[in-house]
Design a protein around this nucleic acid. Sequence first.
RNA 1: GCUGCCCUAGCUCAGUGGUAGAGCACCUCCUUGGUAAGGAGGAGGUCUUGGGUUCAAGCCCCAAGGGCAGCUCCA
Length: 651
Amino acid sequence: MVSITLPDGAVRALARGASGLDVAAAIGARLARDAVAVLIDGKLCDLRAPLERDAALRIVTRGEEAGLEVLRHSMAHAMAQAVMRLFPGASLAIGPTIADGFYYDVAVARPLVPDDLGAIEREMAEIVKADLAIERFPLARADALAWARAGGQGIKCEIIEDLPPEAQISFYRQGDFTDLCAGPHVQRTGQLGSAFKLMKVAGAYWRGDEKREQLQRIYGTAFFRAEDLAEHLRLLAEAERRDHRRLGRELDLFSFHPEAPAMPFFHPRGAFIYNQLIDYVRGLYKVRRYSEVVTPQILDVGLWRQSGHYDNYRENMFFTAFASADKDEAAPRAPASSERQSAVKPMNCPTHCLIYRSRKRSYRELPLRFADFGRIHRHERSGVTAGLFRVRSFSQDDAHIFCMPEQIEAEVIGVTEMILECYRVFGFDDVRIVLSTRPDKSIGSDEIWAKAEAALEAALRRMGVAYQVAPGEGAFYGPKIDFVVKDALKREWQLGTCQLDFSMPERFGLKYTASSGVEETPVMVHRAMLGSLERFLGVLIEHTGGALPLWLAPVQVRVLSISGDHARRAEEVAAALGQAGFRAEADVRNEKIGLKVREASLAKVRYQLIIGAREAERGTVSVRDRVAGDLGEMDLERFQVLLQTGVAEKS
RNA sequence: GCUGCCCUAGCUCAGUGGUAGAGCACCUCCUUGGUAAGGAGGAGGUCUUGGGUUCAAGCCCCAAGGGCAGCUCCA
């Protein structure tokens, strides 16, 4: 007999070799039906795994995340089985579960196209319908290798060879399909159900190494219930509807052009928002005693050698070439050796070091906080650019703080406070803070690292904010704190960062005279709150679905005339609002009011003022809130108070 | 950068070898309409670019550019 302890503390005695399914059945039929897997002493196992010794056991059901992962993992096997049937000779790599589903990497004779997915789905449905038993069996390493070789599964061979010597090598078999797998899995393919969908196919390198074989990665997702799949697909559709690239075009905010790939062109409305963001950050800087600087975009290559960017970041940098003087066409040429080569800056920090070094510095003036909205260029590889999220030309709410080591804690608190305040204003209430510590490869003494990590941690503790530690994830030049927000669609975005840097002050020979009269090296803090303004704008557009808060909206009010007779009054009202500092435009087109309301709403204009005979005569406006609907007729003055309040509240 | 897919009017998309289409947007006219689409007419395209195959190419082939997805990279 073995004694099994359940989560509620109850202990049950069972015959040795009984399974979690027996336990579930003993507790209740409903539990047995919902059971997917078991946790035996914390280890996720098959429901049928024999219980060989006393253990703590918990039944994992369909309702929980771990249960869903088991389903998806089994679904990945069914997909692999379908692929093997449809593409004889295919070989398999790995098929794990991921956040929203699962994938399987396969090597097939020809690349898969989207149409293949339908065929694979149909085959999967057949496999589900056949309700094949899924059986686990162990194999010795040599037998496992023999299996892989016999089946032409070269990648599986490699996986088996890489398994640690003590590993129990297990396989799962369902009908004509067998796969190397640690499990766990459901018991029968019939349990997989029909709430699954193959999403897309893409190339992926084996083990993420681009020098190795390229495989076809098939992505899919699965749920226990059809309505969960429907909800998932609805969220995906919603994300597509909010895609900032689409909204950017529809709301006339920005565009991209082949003449400057991955470099956004901000139209008047987009540029307005962009500048509003900068204005807002400038306001914070005023309170937090930052000084803004303006620095060049093109600098001598020697500077980049000194900073280390030339050695480590050159592939991502743009270099200048000069027009030929003696030819008609302006063919670029490389500078002659006598000329100075220049590079377009990918970061602002070296320019700030030059400002710092422009005269002797005293400890009395530290910390120095240099803020810079300078435009920077990074030659991101063509495949990684994406709308505003990853661009080649952008600016950041960038700043560098030069301070003494003992000032780190206070500065980090200041930065963190400002970042959290800033995110609240934009409606990002869910912020995750991650502290990254010293990596294997790093520069700087043990002493300064210990001091710096302690200062970062002390700052977070003092503030009483929750944070996670990512050991070894810091930059080689110093530890850092990253700030990750969750948007309205529950997606995470790393926006802010606060990185200590012991390297660059050394490289640039930065010094300050300490109170003792001795020359010391300052610590540099790289920090950003919104990060790239381009990327932040993209995130904000998707977070709000394009309906920006009043204080950021390029158009706050649209004044709609009922008929031609009221056009003049509508224009007057729009002009008066403009005079009062609001952003209003008039729509006096020869169209019906329903159409004007519809278009203003689609354009995400928060307030629509309707001007007809009644309003024109009484000097009032009828106010329509895009979300709340008709607010009724009121004096223009009263509407302005409403607007002013909304702007002040940043709502 | 790699792999796959895509590129036809401002936008979304039809168009499988025989001289280019729709809806919306745009312009003009009619309509003067009270809170999410009134009606009619018109204009707009070297079918991304360059080669090739063919009597004939938007359509087939090759290359380049741009985009999308994934991988990878990220001082």
